[in-house]
Nucleic acid binder design. Sequence first.
DNA 1: TTGTAGGCGTTATCAG
DNA 2: CTGATAACGCCTACAA
Lengths: 355, 355
Amino acid sequence: MASKKQIIKQKTIRVDTASRPNVNLRSVAKLVGVSTATVSRAINHPEIVSPHLREKIELAANQLGWVPDGVARALITRRSRTIGAVFPTLSVGDFARATNAIQAELSRAGYTLLLACSEYDIGLELQQVRKFIERGVDGLILVGQNHHPDIETLLSNRNMPVINTFVYDDKTHGTCVGPDNRKALIAMTNYLLDLGHKVFASIAQSTRNNDRASARLEGLRYALAEQGLAVRPQHLLMGEWTIEEGRTLFRRLMETDTKPTAVVCGNAHLAVGAVLEALHMGIRIPQDVSIVGYDDIEIMSHLPVPITTVRVPSAAIGSTAAQILIARLEGLEWTSPMESMPELVIRQSSGPPPA
Amino acid sequence: MASKKQIIKQKTIRVDTASRPNVNLRSVAKLVGVSTATVSRAINHPEIVSPHLREKIELAANQLGWVPDGVARALITRRSRTIGAVFPTLSVGDFARATNAIQAELSRAGYTLLLACSEYDIGLELQQVRKFIERGVDGLILVGQNHHPDIETLLSNRNMPVINTFVYDDKTHGTCVGPDNRKALIAMTNYLLDLGHKVFASIAQSTRNNDRASARLEGLRYALAEQGLAVRPQHLLMGEWTIEEGRTLFRRLMETDTKPTAVVCGNAHLAVGAVLEALHMGIRIPQDVSIVGYDDIEIMSHLPVPITTVRVPSAAIGSTAAQILIARLEGLEWTSPMESMPELVIRQSSGPPPA
DNA sequence: TTGTAGGCGTTATCAG
DNA sequence: CTGATAACGCCTACAA
């Protein structure tokens, strides 16, 4: 015993580099004179702590201004109560509204939203997802179906729940919520075909890394092909999704030799631009040409010629996605429909073709 | 020794309730045959680890598919590399664009964005902020200046950096970035006064819990008062910030006995609605009435009568806010200007009053 | 340059 | 119902 060399353990002192207050669960426990376990229980399972202690603990916590550290909790719990969402951009109204709805829904359930934008770049999307996984999110909400191949493995490895939004696909029922973009455009095209249109044009955003836009174009083509029709190459124009671009492309369309009688626009802004340009050029809508859009934004129903379009319930898509994810995380089942039926909103910008 | 009761320490076994892979820094260390410290250093300070080991460690990490656990790292580091932003809503274009910009900027610096919407409710805002603090955010981005009083103490207690956006105030220089809303409306009003207007009306969103809207109204009033003028009570209408509402309120305005010659709208959508309604009613702009807005959205320059407005650089505000916050967190200084000068964009919706 | 070991704040198991 | 204590995964001061 005496021969034993005495070792003086020197406690490591950490400087408080960051600025969090030094009050923690232990401080509260000490103040009340109970163990840390009891304080923890008082917070997480109040019912199994005696009312007397519970009260004293609550008091002490308030007095010290203590709030449980979510980071430490997440470490031991292996759950961060955090959901990551990666959207292409927020400059598009639908995505902003969906994000808003997701956040509200998550908040209601005590979850927090981590948000990132991929700018329509699947490489960037992969990076964002990776970051979110490092941050320990409990689940993910993405847009569309075509992601970087690595994402698949990344997620299934740690079987992280994920919902794809703004798309619907029977094959992947249960992991996606949104409209079937292809079906939506088939419906719209059939409506125009029924009116008697034969010469179709399309003004759309780039289909590059945008499977929703691709699916819509495919729907248009399919419905036309069923009648033995097709969009002429010079009548298929792509670009940005702005009003300005809609004007430019519409003007270009009208300068071709065979003029289309129906112009199908890939989104709301392009349609607004096309209609405004038509009015500007003195082209009558729908007498000379029908113009339809995709997605319904407020201005469309207020223009001198209100625009026919497909209404996509963005907010509903967002909250449904969030609800499904939460249900899955809580181990519940979700049985409600996940395909949101796109609604054809017929206004005055569409009608029979000129005789 | 023999008399000593033998205590068998039973290792606590935790079931892997959650679904994270069981690969951690330790696994990597074991695989390579080094200590955990070395692996940690290889990740965080590669330069102080021998190239040989560094390479082996990287290889092993990839092979195991290991990514450092951000939660554990945040716990010991006391920094989450996470920023919380609370916006009133994302349905307003500026806020969506600002959020997008913030995210991009944060991402560039290796930070992640936590997002919440307060729906213009300062109580809810307080809750969101509280949640963010529990989650261990390193800093906050808010909108406006009037927050719940508790936020002040909450933040200063743990001196958490915060930036207020879309406002500017000399008194709080350094914590806010945006336009001086009051000044902006003084400029706009003076422009209209110079044109000769005397009867002003205002259509605006509610100023309830919206200090930006209040400041703008104050600016309008101040500039008018300097000329001994004021907005008549029946010419001051408030409501939602939609196109529909703009139409309704404008119509109501034109039904009053003394018709205004200048209508100042509180935001872009209200202005668009007012202009569309005027066109609809056969009122000539600007011959009969001038209509101006606040904030520049694309449609404003594309309507049959393009709308005069104040341009607010939302994206720039967002990225600046993020940059300032990051600079502060990294211990750097920020010297760039934080007041974004609002730009008067004069279009055809404003002109001299009718003779 | 590398290893050892303590501790970040919380939860949860197990024993009283 | 309460207390003691071992994790959770990582970082870092200190020793070698």
